[in-house]
Design a protein around this nucleic acid. Structure first.
Lengths: 349, 349
DNA sequence: CTGAAAGCGCTTACAG
DNA sequence: CTGAAAGCGCTTACAG
C-alpha cells in the first residue's frame, strides 16, 4: 500500500495525468464533469499533489525560513524569540505561508542554509558573518538580516539600540546613581572577536551616556557583567553584586528577563526597589509591567521587528529589487523600579 | 544572473553532472582530485544541490511538521507552546532536522496538510477530528497525535489530565473550600460539539473529586468560567468573581497563565492569598515558582511531551510500524498560593 | 573512476 | 476540452 500519485488517480478516473493536474490547478481547462470525477477519485484514494514535486515545478515552497544562531531549545528559552516569531507569524498568516525553523546544522548556520527548502530566509542574531551573507547572495536566495551589522545592499531591520541604552543610562544617571552595574547577556560564540551587532550598539550607547557625565564603561564604580540571558542567571549575578560592600545602587540590564532576575535577587536580599536599588530592563516584554515594582525599561517592539522582517522578505521573494533598511525606534518607559540614588546622590550641576 | 545548477558546475569543471552529484553525496566514487576540482567550482559559483530537487529524489525532506490548530501568533501567545517547541527542538537538534510550523490554511488544518513539505507531522491541539486523521492516514504521512482523543492504532502522547485536575481539586477541597471557581481556557472553535481532549478530561477529573465530597460541577457554590488563555483574561475574570458578595474562596485554574492573572487580580483587590483566597495553576511553568506567593499547581512536563512526540514521529518516519502510545503523568505541587478556607470551613468528617 | 539514462512526481506550454 | 512531451534539478543503478 503506497501513496497515491497523479498517475494512479488518472488511471482510476480514466483520464490523463494532465487532466488530474488541471483538476487541482486550472479547473477552467477541463469540463466540470471530468473535474468532479477526478476529484472524487482523488478523495477516494487520498491523493493530493506531492508538495515537494509541486515545489520543484513551481519554483516556490510557500515557506519562509528562519535561520537561527542556536539550537531551537536554546533560542526559545529567551522569550524574545516568542515575540519575534509572533510578528513573523502574522505575515505568514496573511500570506498563507509556513515557517521553517532552521537551527545550525553540525554547529554551523552556514551548513544549514543549503538544506532548507524555503523561498527565503530571515537571518536572526548573526553576530559575526562567517560567510553566511555571501553564501546567501551567491545562491540568489532572498534574505533579510535582523539585528546584525548589515552590509550595504542587503535588506535589514534594526533597532536604535545605541539610543535606547543611552536613554536608560542617562535616566539612571539623572537620578544620581554613580555605582552602576550593567548586566548584559553574553555575546554569542564569537565573543572573542569583539562585540558586534545590537550588543555593541548598546554598549556604545551606555558609554556615550556615561561620558556625558565624565564617566565611561571603564570608570570606577561602573561594572559590566555578562551572563546567559535567563532569569536565574540574572538572579545569581545580582545576588553576588548585592553581597558586595560597595554594592551598586543601580542595575541596568540588557533584557527584561535579566531585570526580573535582579528584582528576585533584591527581594530575597531584603533590599528595597527602588528605595535602595534601581533596576532597569530592556525590551518591555509583557512581564515587565506585571512585575512589582513595575519595570522601568526600554521598549522595542520585537513583534514589529518580526513583522517588518517578514514583510521585507516577502517582497524580496516577490522580486522587489530594492533593499529596504528599516530602523525601529526605542522608547524609554519609566515605571516604578527606578528612583533617586540612596546615597551617592550628587548635587545638581 | 541565475542560480548555479549541477549542470553549470559540471561544465565549469569539465565533468559530467553525475560526477558533481558524487562530489557531494558519494565521494568514494570519484578521484580525490576530480572532487577537489568540482568542489572548487561549486564554491566559486555558489552552488549547492537544490534542496527541493534533492528532497524529491531521496524521498525525504529532513523536516518535521508541526500542525497547528491556530495561526502562529495566537498559538505562541500561550507560553505552553514555547515549552512544547523546546521539547520538539531537542529532537530536531539530535537528528539534524528542521521544524516547519504549519498553521491552518484558509482556516483549516486539513487544507494545510497537503501543502507542507515534511517527512511527518506532530498534530497538536486537534480537538475535533474533522478528517485530519483519515487524511493523514490515507496519504501515508507519518504523524503523532498530541493531547487529542487519539483513536486506536495511532501514535500519540497524552497526559493524565483527569488525575491531575482531580488531585488539585481534592487538595482545595481538603483545605475546606466549598465556594470554588474553576477558571478554564476556552475550548477551540469546536466548543459547540462539546468538550474534547484534555479539557474534557480535566473537567471530568474536577467533577470526580467534587463528587467524592457530595458536590459536582453543577453544584451550588461551584462555578465554571471560560476565558481566553491569557494573563489579562484571567485577571478580568477573577476581578469580576472577587467583586461578588459570595465570592469564591478558591480559584482553580486550568493554566498557570490564568492563575498568574488571578494573583494579579487578588493583589489589586487587596485580597490576601492564601489567607483569604486560594489560587491554583496548571502546568508548573517556570513563572509558577517566580510568582509571589509561589503557585500551587499541577506539574506536567510540556517539554517532555514535545520530546516524546518528536521521538515517536522520528521512529514512525524511520518505518517503525508499531504505534506507541504514551501517557505522561502529572504531579500536584503544593506551594504557597493555597491555604485553609477562610470561612466556609467545615468540620472534619 | 566516469558518463548516458531513467526516474522522483509534478506542471504547463503545445498541438490536436 | 484533452493528451503526449518536455522540463523542474537532482540521484543512482547500470554499463562501460
Amino acid at each position: 500500500m503506497t501513496r497515491a500519485t497523479a498517475r494512479s488517480v488518472a488511471e482510476a478516473a480514466g483520464v490523463s495525468r494532465t487532466a488530474v493536474s488541471f483538476a487541482f490547478n486550472d479547473p477552467a481547462k477541463i469540463s466540470a464533469d471530468t473535474r468532479r470525477r477526478i476529484l472524487a477519485e482523488a478523495e477516494r484514494l487520498g491523493y493530493s499533489p506531492h508538495p515537494v514535486a509541486r515545489a520543484l515545478n513551481r519554483g516556490t515552497t510557500d515557506a519562509l525560513g528562519l535561520l537561527l544562531p542556536q539550537p531551537i531549545p536554546e533560542v526559545l528559552e529567551n522569550p524574545y524569540y516568542n515575540l519575534f516569531l509572533q510578528g513573523v507569524g502574522q505575515v505568514c498568516q496573511r500570506e498563507g505561508l509556513t515557517l521553517l525553523l532552521t537551527p545550525p546544522l553540525r554547529g554551523s548556520m552556514l551548513t544549514a542554509i543549503p538544506y532548507a527548502a524555503v523561498d527565503g530566509f530571515i537571518v536572526s542574531g548573526l553576530e559575526v558573518d562567517r560567510g553566511e551573507v555571501a553564501a546567501l547572495q551567491r545562491r540568489h536566495v532572498p534574505f533579510v538580516l535582523v539585528d546584525s551589522d548589515a552590509p550595504e545592499g542587503v535588506p535589514s531591520v534594526e533597532v536604535t539600540d545605541r539610543q535606547g541604552m543611552a536613554d536608560v543610562v542617562q535616566h539612571v544617571l539623572e537620578l544620581g546613581h554613580r555605582r552602576i552595574a550593567l548586566l548584559s547577556f553574553e555575546a554569542g560564540p564569537d565573543r572573542a572577536t569583539g562585540y558586534r551587532g545590537p550588543l555593541a550598539r548598546r554598549l556604545a550607547g551606555a558609554d556615550e551616556a556615561l561620558r556625558r557625565v565624565g564617566l565611561s564603561l571603564s570608570a570606577p564604580g561602573i561594572d559590566l557583567v555578562e551572563v546567559p540571558c535567563t532569569r536565574g542567571a540574572g538572579y545569581d549575578a545580582v545576588a553576588a553584586l548585592l553581597a558586595r560592600a560597595d554594592r551598586p545602587t543601580a542595575i541596568v540590564t540588557f533584557s527584561d528577563i535579566l531585570a526580573l532576575g535582579a528584582l528576585d535577587a533584591a527581594r530575597d536580599a531584603g533590599i528595597d526597589v527602588p528605595g535602595e536599588l534601581s533596576v532597569t530592563g530592556y525590551d518591555d516584554q509583557p512581564d515587565a509591567s506585571y512585575a512589582r515594582p513595575q519595570l522601568t525599561t526600554v521598549r522595542q517592539s520585537i513583534e514589529a521587528k518580526g513583522r517588518v522582517a517578514a514583510d521585507f522578505l516577502v517582497s524580496a521573494i516577490t522580486g522587489d529589487a530594492h533593499h529596504p533598511h528599516q530602523v525601529l525606534h526605542t522608547t524609554l518607559i519609566v515605571r516604578g523600579s527606578t528612583g533617586p540614588a540612596p546615597d551617592d546622590r550628587i548635587p545638581a550641576g
